[in-house]
Design a protein around this nucleic acid. Structure first.
Length: 705
DNA sequence: CCCTGCGCTTTTTTT
DNA sequence: AAGCGCAGGG
């Protein structure tokens, strides 16, 4: 944003420095600018910088805000601590580190990410049955997530569970939570849930934490969920200097418990609040903004507002149809290539000015392929690819066990990696012994040699492993982390392990390089952090992904950005491509089926459109691969809505609803008329009993073909 | 205990 | 198209 000075509304938001303040800021109206200026203003009026807390939604946003704020504040004496700018989750981690023992957790607790959660969910579901229901780990996790975000503990979940399916989930939730606690670990939702619990059960902790700050600022307030809302209340309730900034039209995290009600009803809980509206858009060219406005009016229940464009001229968005996803990728990438080279008649465009936005994480595949072929530099944001790699998870599991040996998921991951002859049978016996004794797995390892059921020699190997870990544990803090890691990797000969698992030398080599990258990011962390520690490093990797890496930043400067619409929130690009604009993708099939979700999908589309400064292209395909087969698609209703073709949009919506319900009916459990799957049909009929029998009776009357 | 191969299921979004 | 769980052989 480079407009010379603050407009009237922005100035008001910046200079109203005491009491609650709600800034209703539309897309591209200078939200971030207002927050950073406000931080500077607070400091100018004499507030101690470190007593200001700004909360953002993503780490990227936090980092950018930190940089801008520091820039604005200019050079300050070394010993003046800067304002605290962090995400909700990092904030909660810091709070929990100070008070975890009150809740019965070690202060060296681990943080479990999605894939740790999946392992835990899998064991939690083992031999749990309610009626005929079964549950996949993913389903369980999404239910647990929903409950946690509503503040429900397992006992509460059991009370409110209605169908068998939910009963089962509640039961598994209880087991899941027990193992988490036994492992001394929090999952992402726990960080919020337990912080809230801490505040409600221990007033002294709440007092201590709320006394740290005089001012609290919150960005992207529309995506605050119930827990975050209560945590904010606890922290800001004393001084009531709470400034929240958000846009109800950009609320896209309802599925995670975000409540638009919080922003719509801010006045209720903070009656003395001032409200400031920012409605002048400095970002998008008028025709782009006009399409965005025309789209979002299709949503009911919103703060009525229309963004005014301050930048006239510019081309209207382009709507383009392709044959399939490959043609889409090919053409888009070719066009980008021309723009980069200036071959399209326009000026050369820097790669970082371009973004390709999509709804789901499988969409970028075709684009990545094409980008690599065309040698167009790109960065794929999110996708989790780095931390999902086996080798990274292995090494981090070692580090986590060093920090917290009770961390059972990590311990199980490494106890036989590299192979040291501690097999599945042995592990089962050990886990059994731990359960019987009621102690962590780690604590029973020394008893292994004396265990009657374990084959000879295994006990010694187990003790050897335990000594190995203890040896390195003792060295923690006495030498640089990166050195310790290198040494450990050498001693366990992890390089050989990689060579064993990945037969192809080049593959093994590139995996090893990933590990070297991890080690050097540990070294970087140690240089950067004030009080480096293993815990700090693990925390950063768990919460921030790899974006703290400076090299990544530099890469982004010269690369086209590929990311989901969700990750695009808060960002802007001169040139935006929104791809896969089809019913089933945007709006996603699942939200169409649930009926309620389409408004949120529309907001998601709105977010995408309003990222664009200069040009916008929206593309869709005639057919797209699904489960290996090409399937005809329906153009997204949003395309028609933003062009004012309301009737046509309605027809698209109806066609989509019909199509998806047909597909759902053909799926498992439904009145399947797929003659091909008689085998699984038979199995199912015997596995489940009464309910399915009724359904299959009808099918049975008109059998095979 | 470890490896390989087969067949089955899977498809939202994120800290 | 890809990942996971299970069975069977070394």
């Amino acid at each position: 944003m480079s407009e010379p000075s603050l407009n009237r509304a922005q100035r008001e938001a910046v200079t109203t420095v005491s009491g609650p303040l709600l800034v209703l800021a539309g897309a591209g109206t200078g939200k971030t600018r207002v927050i950073t200026y406000r931080i500077a203003e607070l400091i100018r009026t004499g507030i101690t910088p470190s007593r200001i807390l700004a909360v953002t939604f993503t780490n990227k946003a936090a980092r950018e805000m930190r940089e801008r704020a520091l820039h604005l504040l200019g050079k300050r004496p070394r010993d003046v601590k800067p304002p605290e700018i962090s995400t909700f989750h990092s904030l909660c981690v810091r709070i929990l580190r100070r008070h975890a023992p009150l809740l019965g957790y070690p202060s060296e607790f681990s943080i479990y990410d999605r894939s740790d959660q999946e392992t835990l969910a899998r064991t939690a579901l083992r031999d749990v049955r309610v009626g005929q229901e079964t549950l996949r780990p993913g389903d369980l996790l999404s239910l647990i997530g929903k409950w946690k975000n509503l503040g429900h503990r397992p006992d509460r979940a059991e009370q409110i569970a209605e169908q068998d399916r939910e009963q089962l989930a509640a039961l598994a939730y209880a087991r899941y939570q027990t193992s988490l606690k036994a492992a001394g670990a929090f999952d992402f939702d726990d960080l919020l849930l337990c912080t809230e619990e801490l505040f409600s059960r221990f007033p002294e902790a709440r007092f201590a934490e709320s006394s740290r700050y005089d001012h609290v600022l919150v960005d992207e307030y529309q995506d605050t969920n119930d827990l975050q809302y209560r945590i904010l209340g606890a922290i800001a309730g004393r001084h009531r200097n709470l400034c929240v900034v958000g846009d109800d039209d950009q609320s896209i995290y309802g599925w995670r418990g975000a409540e638009v009600a919080h922003i719509l009803g801010f006045k209720r809980d903070w009656p003395e609040a001032r409200i400031v509206r920012l409605e002048e858009n400095y970002r998008s060219r008028a025709p782009i903004l006009q399409h965005a406005n025309q789209l979002i009016v299709h949503n009911g229940s919103r703060h009525e507002k229309t963004l005014r464009a301050t930048r006239d001229g510019g081309a209207p968005p382009r709507f383009v149809r392709f044959e399939d996803e490959n043609a889409e990728a090919e053409t888009v990438v070719r066009e980008i290539q021309q723009r980069l080279a200036g071959d399209d008649g326009g000026p050369r465009v820097p790669a970082s000015d371009i973004a390709i936005l999509f709804r789901t994480n499988e969409q970028p595949r075709a684009f990545e392929l094409e980008m690599r072929r065309a040698k167009v530099p790109y960065v794929l944001i999110g996708g989790m690819s780095f931390y999902d790699r086996k080798e990274v998870r292995d090494v981090l599991a070692y580090m986590r066990v060093l920090a917290n040996p009770s961390d059972e998921v990590s311990l199980l991951r490494i106890i036989n990696t590299p192979l040291r002859g501690i097999g599945a049978g042995t592990i089962e016996t050990l886990v059994g012994a731990a359960v019987e004794k009621g102690s962590p797995l780690w604590a029973v390892l020394p008893d292994a040699p004396a265990h009657p059921d374990l084959p000879h020699g295994v006990g010694e190997r187990i003790v050897g492993f335990q000594r190995l870990i203890e040896g390195y544990r003792a060295r923690l803090g006495t030498e640089p982390l990166a050195e310790l890691m290198t040494d450990l990797l050498r001693v366990i000969d992890y390089k050989a392990e990689l060579a064993r698992v990945y037969r192809e030398a080049s593959e093994a080599q590139s995996r090893w390089e990933t590990i070297e990258g991890l080690v050097s990011s540990a070294a970087l962390y140690e240089q950067r952090a004030e009080n480096p520690s293993l815990l700090g490093f693990l925390e950063e990797t768990a919460l921030t992904g790899r974006e703290d890496d400076r090299t990544d930043d530099r890469r982004e400067l010269h690369a086209v950005t590929l990311m989901t619409l969700h990750s695009a929130k808060g960002l802007e690009f001169p040139h935006v491509y929104m791809v896969g604009m089809e019913e089933g993708i945007l709006p996603h099939a699942r939200s169409v089926m649930e009926g309620r979700g389409v408004d949120e999908e529309r907001r998601l589309c709105y977010v995408g459109v309003t990222r664009a400064r200069e040009t916008l292209m929206l593309s869709f395909t005639r057919q797209r691969m699904k489960w290996g087969k090409p399937r005809a698609t329906i153009p997204s209703r949003f395309l028609m809505e933003m062009r004012g073709e309301t009737e046509k949009a309605k027809r698209a919506a109806e066609a989509a609803a019909q199509l998806f319900s047909q597909i759902a009916a053909a799926g498992p459990g439904g009145a399947g008329d797929k003659r091909g799957d008689k085998k699984s049909g038979d199995k199912r009929a015997t596995a489940r009993k009464p309910k399915a029998a009724a359904g299959s009776a009808r099918r049975g009357s008109r059998p095979q073909r």
